[in-house]
């Protein structure tokens, strides 16, 4: 059980930085006027976010003290804003949400995941 937990945490540790970079890249492409390029990876990006949310949710369900600092509602709210900006074709807002909001949330999640993994390993 501990082994599987650590494996999942490690996967998250490897994957979330890629999502963070993708958030920056997409924002940069949109701000440069290359929305098309940004949207090429949109599907994979959203799937990646979904996987991350599921993985975190799975870990939380294994123990009441696990990843308590992470509030998934926060990311969900950002994603709702993201969806609305996409529908309105408000690309300025879209880039802002990616660069300053989703990226920030993911970075916080990553820090929490890393700390938690270290604590688990010490036990």
């Amino acid at each position: 059980m501990k082994k599987e937990l650590l494996e999942l945490l490690e996967s998250l540790e490897n994957y979330v930085p890629k999502l963070i970079n993708a958030s920056s890249d997409m924002a940069e492409n949109i701000q440069s006027g290359n929305e098309g390029k940004a949207f090429l990876i949109l599907k994979d990006y959203i799937e990646g976010i979904m996987w991350t949310v599921e993985a975190i949710d799975t870990i939380k369900s294994l123990g009441s003290q696990y990843l308590t600092e992470i509030e998934l509602e926060l990311l969900n709210d950002k994603l709702k804003c993201f969806e609305e900006a996409m529908l309105n074709q408000d690309y300025v807002l879209l880039a802002d949400i990616l660069e300053y909001e989703i990226k920030e949330v993911l970075s916080d999640y990553l820090n929490t995941i890393t700390d938690f993994k270290m604590r688990i390993q010490d036990v």
């Binding site: 940069e28 701000q31 006027g33 290359n34 880039a95 802002d96």
Partner: peptide
């Protein structure tokens, strides 16, 4: 609708200018 970034219009413009 924001015409410039509501976070950092200068940073947004800089990225655009580098590309353009």
């Amino acid at each position: 609708f924001y015409i410039h970034s509501r976070y950092n219009p200068e940073a947004e413009a800089e990225k655009w200018a580098v590309s353009f």
